[in-house]
Design a protein around this nucleic acid. Structure first.
Lengths: 265, 265
DNA sequence: GCTGGACCCTCCCCCCGGGGGAGGGTGCAC
DNA sequence: GTGCACCCTCCCCCGGGGGGAGGGTCCAGC
């Protein structure tokens, strides 16, 4: 039996941290003296402590560490660990994108964005829609478009999406992806939806989506400068995307912001 | 002039976050109405907001973001950004090491570690020592050994280190690296130091240092099982290291824990 | 001019995973 | 039996947000 200080020395986890892990139900001492509250660990717990240490180095949340340790089945366990490695991987991709985008932002090129005002009539499209968290948008989007493309046989234009402002302001909001077609079917999640007529301020974003808020910003500045106000969810149209070419510099995304005239300009 | 909600929509930063950035002095509104406290932003601030957004995606602390934004000189600014990318890089290396180590930990191999008790006489060595934070140990170590190796011309053995337990328990502690030699010089930070005689429980760690606490743990379990207690800083000896061969599987590190007998076993 | 609703303000509490330190009880070797 | 290292709980702090209360403000429509 090892007192907490000794166990700390053997595992290179601080006494504080060991106590916290006990409270969190992660690494329960083999014995706790009822009278004094002293925690006593057994040497067999050292490997467990080391696994915890590694998982924490990988920023696995304590709750997930507990889940991993409690799963008796090594296959389940390996699956949970693999999930986290997957998460780290996508985190890394996000970081890479942010680095690239930062470089472009700090590059001295001004990259003027052209904005055009366009009146759009109401259209009926095949659509999938849902309330989605910001972090899940990408995954949701790929699932929804895959379903759309599987169901719509003769699309009459490029796919698009509508994104509620709440998605960016509150991290969660209504999202709709659609594919224009003459006869929108009603299969699985796919439904015919009529998008209302709007006046759009439209700018075209060139390149990766990691930079897209730059174009959003330019579009927004233009909208403000032209005494317009934003009304309703933003509309994106994916003219050229990863489906069409692997070369990101060829990608084209139209961003359309529904606007109305503020006062009498 | 844009109210905070509108600016939020244009930058995809939440209203809350914008207020926080104001408080932190990161992104001050162009105007603040003295009477009402209302924040008003100018469209020119959109690009700044986007740079902040990118930096935060890279987990750059707010204080550093402020520093980057305030540095007028683009060269300084690029340097600060590069520093952070460097930090991300080393973070990535750490993650990779943790992943590899976790895989090995979860591998079904028991990898029995052999432990031996060894009495060591007092020795005088050439040493560099200091109080170091845990996070800085690696950097400090490479600097100190480089200095040692530059100054000691005829080492009589492998380099070693002494690591205070406080380093692991409290994140900061006394560290000493040394090179055994017949005539220890007194140059720069290098000093002759006499290491006291000790009885050591010794185990040899094979492979990368990312796993070294596993061997620490096995050594500790052995020490406990043999009714010994730990006394004083751990001693590592780098028999084969990165200086000798790039192949990590060939590396050999002796870990020696000063021990004394507990009670009459 | 008034009213309603959207917008904005400050302030406090919560999350995570730790660290610092106070104030007090315990184990054990001398 | 005494000193001291060790252990306990409890509270506050950090950074970078989110939730929500309670209250003031802007402005369009009537």
């Amino acid at each position: 039996m090892l007192a907490i200080g000794e166990f700390s020395r053997l595992t290179h986890l601080s006494v504080r941290t060991l106590r916290r892990y006990h409270d969190a139900g992660l690494l329960e001492p083999a014995t706790v003296d009822q009278a004094t509250g002293y925690r006593y660990y057994s040497p067999e717990q050292i490997p467990t402590a080391q696994v915890v240490h590694r998982l924490r180095e990988l920023d696995v949340p304590l709750a997930d560490v507990r889940r991993i340790l409690r799963s008796p089945d090594p296959v389940t366990r390996a699956g949970l660990v693999a999930d986290h490695l997957q998460r780290l991987e996508s985190e890394l991709a996000r970081t890479r994108a942010a680095v690239a985008s930062l470089r472009r932002l700090l590059a001295p090129e001004p990259s003027p964005v052209e904005v055009e005002l366009r009146a759009l009539p109401a259209t009926t499209v095949a659509a999938v829609e849902d309330d989605v968290a910001h972090a899940d948008v990408l995954a949701w989007y790929s699932g929804a478009t895959a379903e759309l493309e599987a169901v719509v046989d003769a699309p009459s234009g490029a796919p698009g999406g509508l994104y509620d402002n709440a998605l960016f302001e509150h991290g969660r909001g209504h999202v709709l992806v659609h594919l224009p077609t003459d006869r929108p079917p009603r299969v699985g999640r796919v439904r015919p939806v009529t998008l209302p007529a709007v006046e759009l301020a439209v700018a075209t974003h060139v390149g990766e989506h990691g930079d897209i808020d730059v174009t959003y910003g330019e579009l927004g500045a233009w909208v403000v400068a032209n005494a317009l106000a934003v009304a309703g969810p933003v509309r994106e149209t994916y003219l050229v995307g990863p489906r069409d070419t692997p070369d990101p510099t060829a990608w084209r995304t139209e961003i359309g912001w529904p606007v109305f005239r503020v006062a009498a300009g």
